[in-house]
Simulated assay, not measured.
Amino acid sequence: MSDMHLMFHRYRKYIFYLLALYVVGWGFTEYQSVFLGLILGTSISLYNLWAMVRKHRLFDKALQEGKKVSLGTASRMAAAVVAVFFSLKFPEYFHLISVVIGLMTMYVVIMIDFFIQHSRT
């Protein structure tokens, strides 16, 4: 398994733990819109990571065959816009700032994992 796939599995595990924590927060606190926004944003962030890993695999394959393939930046941005649209359309359910923080969660997880992996070596 390539390094990219190993990293993806680690990141996915961390995100699922965070999502479980957010679900507990949604169920047991009075800040339900905040936690639902975090759930929405983090879910879209996980989808964006999955799409990037999938496109990376296709990009590697196309590079070996000499073809051109885009990395799908527009589709990942469109997914983020959809999440923000839902938070603006349903503000009683989704907190906008929480959705934006959730969208950035993957980058924070990647940075933390980078420091953890490099501190081990």
Rank of each mutant, 00 (worst) to 15 (best):
T73Y: 13
S75N: 05
S70H: 11
Y47T: 10
I39V: 13
G41K: 00
S70Y: 08
A62H: 10
L71P: 12
A74V: 15
K55E: 13
I39M: 13
K68P: 14
H56A: 08
L40C: 04
S75A: 11
M52I: 03
D60K: 15
V53C: 10
L49T: 05
K67H: 09
Y47I: 12
L38W: 08
Y47W: 15
V53S: 09
D60N: 14
A51Q: 12
V53E: 12
G41Y: 04
S70F: 04
T73S: 08
G37E: 03
S43G: 15
L36W: 03
W50H: 14
L49M: 14
A51C: 03
L71D: 05
K61A: 12
S45L: 01
L71V: 07
V53T: 10
L40D: 05
L71K: 10
N48I: 05
I44A: 07
K55D: 14
Y47Q: 05
N48A: 13
T73D: 08
A62Q: 01
A62F: 06
W50F: 15
A74R: 09
L40Y: 02
I44T: 11
G72Q: 08
G72D: 13
N48M: 08
S70R: 05
G37V: 00
L58D: 13
F59V: 02
A51M: 10
